[in-house]
Design a protein around this nucleic acid. Structure first.
Lengths: 334, 334
DNA sequence: GTGAAAGCGCTAACAA
DNA sequence: TTGTTAGCGCTTTCAC
């Protein structure tokens, strides 16, 4: 069943059928009804390829993330999908993993699908450092379609960034810890992404301002796995700390498990804060103080910006920073 | 840049360019190299719409799930995406929510994208009961493309089902509980999906076999939210139970929180088992005994079946049941 | 081994 | 208000 069949049965031209299908006002009510009846009866759906060929758009947004099984990213994708769908866009999903090569590959793959815009979720899609070319492929993608980064930052034309102010978030936590008399604050991270660097900066800034030294051995890197964190911490017997700033909730839960194993009291003997305020934070025991970086707000803002860009608006903000909020629960006493 | 440009620059016809792009053997090595050089230099990518128009396929699989932010589903989608991608297929994602109307709508939306096959993740896409028409839209979808259900079951032509044997899983847990002398086993669920019904059946079967009555007040329904479960349980003061079979880990963690609030000892005074063996199970305290329903195996089998179906194989099994496994941790003493 | 040309199903500019 | 028609970029016979 194609547009010709419908036109023939309805006794009109294909142009009229097209008009009806696309809701053009230039059709008499009578013809519209006649055509609609035929369409319904014959269960006709326009061929999306042919339409795409003509319009060079399929109203489809590419979403790329390193790993959709990650709680933070799946949450983000969920919100994005809903928002985009509300605006008549569909999503095509790519999971790139963390290797740069695969990120480049998946970006091009998505681009080859003639998506209308590209959203990259996660701070893995960002520049490593000043003047670094790590994210050059992001800029290249932006030459073809507008690119939106959730929780990442790359400067460039046609690139729009939405991220939580993780620097401030980490600063706030560290400062609060210091005020409560903590002196050896462990910075626990699992990566060197944009977001992780921001957190590190905030952590260091708070330390410096208070006149405390930044100690290399208090920066601890581990895999994002509860059991792994616990074991690593257990192994490093010489490592001493009175509090932990973890870059995500999983790491923080690992610390909780470590404390439990060693019989350390939380928060009396050890303060722990996580990051992301995920479901995990209320699932562990004691429940975790965590920084909420507002994925929902971030994603909704991004969708909003995306729609505006695609509608041709010129003055859409490219740099969108959102404040994070510490959600206090039971693993800290500030 | 389109195929005509390339043809012109390379000094060949578009047919030859097409052959080169599609790896046809009927091109001389010399011409191939010449054309390839031009393609590389001009950064040409074939227009996927035009190609789709001709072939009526875009090598794209539609994946539908109620909610991608759910841990179980995002895990499944992650595995599916990887598997499909390895076979040269891309994914387009739809999140339908739980309302039937929206499920139908999203199914049709995906179908209208001319996907090559449809995967539905989650037992929300299944038949409610015997001879029920609830899942008629699944059968309708199957008239257009092969449909694959992960953790769901709908009988019909062109429908392939992959699900864990949740009946057996629930039976095993319940039977183990009974053997340990438990008499009032709470069946805790958040839905009436295919999977939930299977679990209920297993639960009841074990009870009946042991000669115990099936008590209506021991079937408890709650929202899938830790805090909610805890509060509901706290509210129902008259409800007595010595063990809990929860249909997923979130519910089980809710029970843990309830026990903590009431000072009930686990597993001594209360046995708790979850389902799905998700990350949550090792994040809570004490760590949760949980039934592993093998998403990874399920999804990989599904991908395998899908590829075989799309390649035209005729004898692909439609009904694929996988055995689940109880992962024992600290919330039970069997 | 290569090219010419006929679709694929739709949109939109133009004519009527 | 409606119809005619020229693309959109590619694949694929069918000749050569």
């Amino acid at each position: 069943m194609n547009i010709y069949d419908i036109a023939e049965i309805a006794g009109v031209s294909i142009a009229t059928v097209s008009r009806v299908v696309n809701g053009s006002p230039n059709v008499s009510e009578k013809t519209r009804q006649k055509v609609m009846a035929v369409i319904e009866k014959s269960n006709y759906t326009p061929n999306i390829f042919a339409r795409g060929l003509g319009l060079d758009s399929m109203k489809t947004i590419g979403i790329l993330c390193p790993d959709i099984s990650d709680a933070y990213m799946s949450e983000a994708v969920s919100i994005l999908e809903k928002g985009l769908h509300n605006h008549g866009y569909d999503c095509i999903l790519g999971c790139s993993g963390d290797e740069r090569e695969m990120k480049v590959y998946h970006t091009e793959l998505l681009l080859s699908k003639r998506i209308d815009a590209l959203i990259m979720v996660g701070s893995a899609y960002a520049e490593k450092g000043e003047g670094c070319l790590e994210a050059e492929y992001v800029r290249q993608a932006a030459e073809k379609v507008p690119v939106f980064l959730i929780n990442g930052y790359v400067e460039g034309e046609n690139i729009y960034c939405f991220y939580g102010d993780d620097r401030q978030g980490a600063y706030d936590v560290t400062a609060a810890l210091i005020r409560r008399g903590k002196r050896r604050i462990l910075f626990l991270s699992d990566s060197h992404t944009f977001s992780a660097r921001q957190k590190m900066e905030g952590y260091e800034a708070a330390l410096s301002e208070a006149g405390y030294p930044i100690l290399g051995d208090l920066k601890f890197y581990a895999r994002k796995q509860v059991q792994y964190v616990k074991e690593m911490l257990l192994m490093h017997k010489t490592l001493e700390f009175d509090s932990v700033f973890a870059c995500n909730d999983t790491l923080a839960v690992g610390v909780l498990k470590y404390a439990k194993a060693k019989g350390i009291k939380i928060p009396e003997d050890l303060s722990v804060t996580g990051y992301n305020n995920s479901k995990m934070a209320v699932c562990c025991e004691p429940e975790l103080t965590s920084v909420d970086n507002k994925v929902e707000i971030l994603c909704n803002k991004a969708v909003d910006g995306l729609i505006r860009v695609l509608e041709g608006e010129k003055d859409v903000r490219q740099d969108n920073k959102i404040v994070c909020e510490i959600v206090k629960r039971c693993t800290t006493d500030f």
